[in-house]
Design a binder for these strands. Structure first.
Lengths: 259, 259
DNA sequence: AACTTAATATCGCCG
DNA sequence: CGGCGATGTTAAGTT
């Protein structure tokens, strides 16, 4: 970028329609080179090899290549890409003669990384569109209604958990991991609180149980130690597990935007 | 598809560059209407409200609207969309005068669903490109190297777990859930096997422990019952937990493509 | 870099 | 539709 001049049109979108594979190749390479976001729509096959292996026969798909090294292959269905490569990958694009018939050519997009070794191969036999996008996005997402928000809510108003509850520490460490909230009830009993922002299953009970067990061992406590799971609601099986292990449940939701 | 005739051009890509907001609106509406995959690149703000809430200030982003009701908002960084809406949503698109100054107009894309109630609002103040894609993708992804493949590998060669192991059932149900593999060792002791395709932490130990406990209660067994966690490797803390609960570990990887 | 946990997790299966 | 667990989970925070 140049100096303090009021920025010229910094957002651009350049599109090729029905390009030859060679023209598409050049446009994609140029886009990657100047760190643009590149999209390709065309008829392609996809192969992945790394943590697992996958193949995808020829079909029409939308491929997005980001300047941070991300690759996403989307079909017309599903929230998740059918294939992908995470940020930090090296991209390579070239045209290649098909092995069987030297008369046919394919456009190949490769994306690979190490740790772990992973490789994605997209082979286009036809490209309907190539676009390169440049733009700016300085802003960060602000998100609320998370587990951190639920913790804040309880710390600001401990009576929500139960009247007289006194928080003593957050993220208190035990051999089993960090306790969300550690405190005392009116009777002076130690309370271990595990927070979940949404309906909980058996996993959360196991987690709370590990913390209570670890803390009991840590404190050599013969006195009773309470474990409370805080979430909007609880499944049947988890509720039974709580009972079996002498643990408690309190229904609380994370604060919404307006609250 | 029609008969043996070489198929007519069924894949299409239609693009508008630098459209007016009204033209963009029409193109998007038309694309959604004929069940195309629609992409929009432009300067926009995004608001989400539902399971959580989020806002995103104005910036250049790539929005993809799929015919199955999915919406994805991507920036130039990250594998994950910065905002999204899952399949099954209803889309709506329209132009609207900005509240403050009636002279300014915005293009609004709404995507919403119920159960749970969720709403996504994308407001464009400028659109650089709109594209609509139609195509076919009949094929399914074939994936290998999954937990199911690991199970198959052990069932075909039980000695991999330990010499003389005899699988008796897969997915045997207990009150705590389904056991991956249920079998017997050479001494006739019941064995509960929990499979993980990658390195395991404390969660997996808790899961195995629940299964073993549930099965012991189910069988009223006074005889010893073994629990074996099978994974490529195990973390320190999980290893200690295994020891504390009298559970075992066997190192095995899911088969790779060539094996 | 390894470990642990949260997530608007997503997705598929099954009851 | 809810419960449950796998995922090429991904992503973030801490050690």
């Amino acid at each position: 970028m140049t100096s303090g001049q009021p920025s010229v049109e910094s957002s651009t979108a350049i599109t090729l329609e029905q390009p030859s594979l060679e023209a598409a190749c050049d446009a994609i390479a140029a886009g990657i080179d100047r760190e643009a976001l590149v999209t390709i729509f065309g008829h392609c096959t996809v192969e992945y090899d790394g943590r697992a292996s996958s193949t995808l026969e020829a079909g029409d798909r939308h491929v997005m290549v980001k300047p941070d090294g991300t690759t996403l292959v989307h079909t017309d269905e599903g929230q998740q890409p059918v294939n992908w490569q995470p940020p930090g990958c090296e991209h390579e694009v070239y045209c290649e003669d098909t092995e069987e018939t030297a008369s046919e050519t394919t456009l190949v997009l490769e994306s690979q990384r190490s740790t772990p070794e992973e490789h994605l191969l997209v082979q286009f036999e036809r490209v309907l569109q190539v676009s390169t996008f440049s733009g700016t996005d300085e802003t960060d997402l602000t998100l609320s209604g998370t587990e951190a928000d639920l913790r804040t809510r309880i710390l600001e108003n401990p009576d929500l958990l139960e009247p007289g509850f006194t928080p003593l520490a957050t993220e208190r460490t035990t051999p089993a991991g960090a306790i969300d909230i550690y405190g005392e009830d009116t009777a002076g009993r130690t309370v271990v609180v595990e927070l979940k922002r949404r309906r909980v299953g058996p996993d959360a009970v196991g987690q709370l149980r590990r913390y209570v067990d670890a803390l009991e061992r840590d404190l050599h406590a013969d006195a009773s130690l309470r474990g409370i799971l805080v979430a909007p609601s609880v499944t049947d099986r988890a509720s039974r597990l709580l009972g079996e292990h002498g643990l408690e449940f309190v229904s609380l939701e994370p604060p919404s935007d307006s609250q």
